[in-house]
């Protein structure tokens, strides 16, 4: 959990920084105190841990390190490994599917094998790719928790884990889509995929019009994280510069 949220060692570093900040910015606080009668930090720092799960995470991490089960470096490396998985990986997969119909067929038939072909192993869970078409738009949610194709796309955005998104996506999907700027005609079927079990879903957005001449790399730049979750479409290409 700590690795997945990227908040491991920061918690430790933070408690050391606190006193330092206070000394460094003390004069600023004094000015503010004079003006307002009480002091505010110029900019709020990271929140101190306050929730049970945060204390549990810190306690577990410190115990694992103290008992030599894991080292701080191993934990930091794991966090780094997760941080290096980004939506860019997924964008490469989508761009390949757009330019290579055989690859797209393989991706739809066996997502795990197809992304592994491009150097992105996806293990332990089924990766299911679903294709958006002019008739059907897919949108992924996990109402139970925050299931997401992390092995390919990295850590999900905060809103994906919010109660608001999780409860509203299944009940009023078009209202949620509209808040992402995605308005679909009534004759398009919106299919919400509730990722409830051992499968992870990757949406293949529709290839934007006017992209016939683009390279695979330029196409990948049009594939956003949200378009692979299905809350948005892929970006339209920039108009070609007139030489």
């Amino acid at each position: 959990m700590s690795g997945a949220d990227g908040r491991g060692p920061q918690g430790l570093a933070h408690s050391h920084d606190h006193g330092h900040d206070r000394r460094e910015h003390g004069h600023r606080h004094d000015h503010e105190a004079a003006a307002h009668g009480h002091s505010h930090p110029f900019q709020p720092d990271l929140q101190e841990p306050s929730q049970d799960w945060e204390f549990l995470e810190i306690a577990l991490r410190e115990l694992l390190i103290e008992k030599g089960v894991l080292s701080a470096r191993e934990i930091a490396e794991k966090i780094d490994q997760w941080d290096r998985r980004t939506p860019q990986n997924g964008a490469e997969v989508i761009a390949r599917a757009w330019v290579d119909p055989d690859y797209k067929a393989r991706l739809l038939a066996d997502g795990n094998a197809a992304v592994a072909e491009l150097g992105y192993p996806f293990e332990g869970l089924e990766l299911i790719a679903v294709e958006n078409t002019p008739q059907r738009h897919h949108m992924v949610v996990c109402t139970l928790c925050s299931c997401y194709p992390r092995q390919l796309l990295g850590i999900p955005p905060l809103w994906y884990k919010s109660r608001a998104y999780r409860s509203r996506a299944v009940r009023e999907p078009r209202a949620v889509l509209a808040e992402f700027g995605t308005v679909l005609p009534e004759d398009v079927e919106v299919r919400v995929l509730d990722s409830t079990a051992d499968c992870r879903y990757l949406v293949i957005p529709m290839r934007p019009a006017g992209t016939e001449g683009l390279s695979e790399a330029d196409l990948a730049a049009l594939v956003t994280r949200d378009s692979m979750i299905g809350t948005a479409q892929a970006r339209a290409p920039h108009p070609a510069p007139t030489a």
């Binding site: 009940r171 919400v192 079990a197």
Partner: peptide, 24 residues
């Protein structure tokens, strides 16, 4: 796959063709 109308029975906002799929 479920029709949205079968899931929410009116207590939601969705298009007539909209659907929801889950792994069960």
């Amino acid at each position: 796959v479920f029709a949205m109308a079968a899931v929410w029975q009116g207590d939601g906002a969705y298009g007539a063709r909209d659907s929801l799929a889950a792994d069960i």
